[in-house]
Simulated assay, not measured.
Amino acid sequence: MRSLKVIKIGGNVIDNPEKLQSFLSDFAAIEGPKILIHGGGKIATKLSTELGIEAKLIDGRRITDEDTLRVVTMVYGGLINKNIVASLQKYQCNAIGLTGADANIICAKKRPVKKIFSKEMNQAIDLDYGFVGDLDKSSVDAASLCKLLESGFTPVFSAITHDGKGQLLNTNADTIASILAASLVKQYETSLIYCFEKSGVLMDVNDESSLIESINPSVYSDLKKNGIINEGMIPKLDNAFEAIENGVKEVFIGKSDALTGLNQNNFGTRLTM
């Protein structure tokens, strides 16, 4: 069975043109089939401010209203995605830029209204995230995706999906990466790689030398119990272990400029069962 690498690049790298170009050069050099998923960085927020569209937050949770969806679609699916594709072509990687709507590859479900207790309002409220998509095992059309891979294309997905009824949805890029990797385990031996600005999962978030080289579910449980893993990292690791439970061979979390270390098994934190 052929190996496939599903790689997600974080927003902080996208915000830095020099680091992004270095990463894309390393990504293009990876042999064999591969998929890239990217977020949006701060560009969408900057453009929203310039257009006078105020970010809507409820208890720290971002809401994707109609105006915000227009902006993130333009930025994620247009500006960022096509610039990444153009750069990969420069590095002789035959990339094709996609949203989940293209070829009906990723069909999401609009996140349902959820009842929460709002600290701001000091009462229970119905929280509507707006045009946000959630994914499950049935979300991906693996056959269509495989056709692209088998034709020699490198798919580059933005964090935009659709609901199959004509509605685009803003969707978490980490989750897209996890679901894509898990959906292809019958066709490929898949590895999932999350690239961002840190060296990996750290014992001390302020100390790059405190890298945790390997994590299994038992170690993960202890790290959470002892408060070593912060809130921002927990959803990423939850996605990672869910992917492994669904057949993904291994998951790596590491620094974008160390991607070449994958070939020497010397990249960030490795997650396994």
Rank of each mutant, 00 (worst) to 15 (best):
A142R: 14
I14M: 00
G10T: 02
D128H: 05
K82C: 06
K19T: 06
R2Q: 13
V251G: 06
L223I: 11
E231W: 08
G32K: 05
S209M: 10
A182H: 05
T49L: 11
N226L: 04
D15Q: 00
S87F: 08
E231R: 12
N206R: 13
A103E: 02
F157M: 00
A143I: 11
L36W: 06
F153K: 05
T45L: 03
A240D: 09
A243K: 07
L237Q: 07
P155I: 10
A143E: 12
S218F: 12
G40I: 00
L36C: 07
G32L: 03
K110M: 11
A29T: 10
S144W: 08
G60P: 00
N122T: 08
Y76P: 02
G268S: 03
L47R: 01
V6N: 05
R111M: 05
C93F: 00
N206M: 08
E54S: 11
V85K: 09
R61S: 02
S221R: 15
R70K: 15
Q89N: 15
S178Y: 01
D67V: 04
D204C: 03
E213V: 05
V201W: 09
I229G: 12
P33S: 13
L149T: 09
T272A: 11
L180W: 05
S256F: 09
D174L: 11
F131G: 06
V113S: 07
K109V: 14
E120R: 12
L47K: 00
G227C: 02
K198F: 04
K90G: 08
P112W: 02
T269V: 06
A243T: 07
D238T: 13
